[in-house]
């Protein structure tokens, strides 16, 4: 019963999320945009740390480079912001190549620190870029969001202000990016490469002995997540409309929150980041009147989960109930298992 119900619930939730700009106040759309941004980042970090064993603390490098490439595309080249977003993703993926050459020489904690250092070098380098405001940053030219492709159409369709239409557009794009990430992660992890990745996670030496090339697989994940993280960062900063090196390369905003969300939800599980982001959002709402106290609660919750439930809330849930709507297991073909009738 639960197996047939789960997809229906998911589809309904998705339909509500897509309809939101038409039925909910603008503030809520903006709120959810921020949450979806964190979700996309968390799904990427989960792929890296939870499945490829690459505990990166430098994901803010890709957010920042994506954002700055997007700003450069708009301000210096006069391109449409949506084209700028794609350029942001590509720029982040290109930056990931030399970064991988450096960081892949390091293991474990050294990899984590190495990626952080590279991200900070990128921040310092970008703050020398005078055409984009140097250390103080720059804003999108007035009217950029209004002139974005599709905004006029959305404005008429929803009968809202231009600014609200621009918010709706970026919201839908971020929501679509999150859905695409989920589907792509599922397909990837169920594929031959995903299987190899899980083998590497369990025992890298043994994986090599059965023909898996760990470096190749890890590099593929690193580049793909850099691309998606760059897209996400660029999109996020269209809505923010102003970029500074400190904001775009913030390790707290773009990596630390993301790590907590993933760990609380369930690192190394596909739905983990979704659960984590819901908890994060709920805490933020519930404790909104107490200032940043929700961060303290979030931190304590993160520590508790690390100590007592290493596969997060989602891991607890699947262990207790046996329900897993997105299983990564490969089942044997039935014909050859006479002992297995089910």
């Amino acid at each position: 019963m639960s197996r047939s119900l789960a997809p229906l619930i998911a589809l309904f939730a998705l339909a509500v999320l897509y309809a939101l700009p038409a039925i909910a106040p603008r503030a809520m759309v903006q709120d959810l945009f921020g949450i979806l941004t964190l979700l996309v980042l968390a799904m990427n970090w989960n792929l890296l740390a939870g499945f490829a064993g690459l505990v990166s603390v430098g994901q803010q490098a890709f957010v920042g480079i994506g954002a700055y490439a997007m700003f450069a595309a708009i301000i210096l080249m006069g391109l449409d912001p949506l084209v700028g977003v794609v350029i942001g993703g590509i720029a982040a993926a290109i930056f990931a190549i030399p970064m991988a050459f450096f960081a892949f020489r390091l293991n474990g904690a050294y990899f984590a620190i190495g990626t952080w250092v590279v991200a900070d070098i990128a921040r310092l380098a970008i703050s020398q870029w005078k055409a984009l405001g140097g250390g103080t940053g720059t804003s999108l030219p007035k009217g950029t969001a209004k002139e974005m492709a599709f905004v006029d159409g959305i404005k008429e369709m929803l009968d809202v202000s231009t600014a609200a239409a621009a918010d709706a557009l970026t919201y839908w794009l971020m929501l679509s990016l999150a859905v695409a990430m989920l589907v792509a992660s599922y397909v990837f992890l169920r594929s031959r490469m995903g299987l190899g990745l899980q083998a590497i996670r369990d025992n890298e030496n043994a994986a090599r002995s059965v023909g898996v090339d760990p470096l190749k697989l890890k590099a593929a994940v690193f580049l793909l997540t850099a691309f998606a993280t760059g897209l996400c960062g660029a999109l996020a900063f269209i809505q923010i409309t102003r970029v500074t090196p400190d904001a775009a390369f913030s390790v707290i905003d773009w990596t630390a929150f993301v790590i907590f969300i993933t760990v609380i939800g369930g690192i190394g599980t596909l739905p983990g980041p979704i659960v984590g982001v819901v908890v994060f959002y709920a805490l933020q709402r519930a404790l909104a009147d107490y200032g940043t106290i929700y961060l303290i609660v979030l931190g304590c919750l993160g520590i508790a989960v690390m100590l007592f439930a290493r596969r997060g809330l989602w891991g607890l849930f699947t262990d207790r109930t046996g329900i897993d709507p997105l299983p990564l297991r490969h089942r044997p073909p039935r014909a050859a298992t006479p002992s297995h009738s089910a």
């Binding site: 043994a206 994986a207 059965v210 898996v212 297991r329 044997p332």
Partner: peptide, 26 residues
């Protein structure tokens, strides 16, 4: 190659252990 001290992929099923080998090495 088989290792002197067994090195299974502990979180994968027995079937998946072989599947990795067949899909990559095989």
């Amino acid at each position: 190659r088989s290792f002197q001290i067994p090195q299974p992929f502990g979180d994968l099923t027995v079937y998946e252990n072989l599947l990795v080998a067949a899909r990559f090495g095989g």
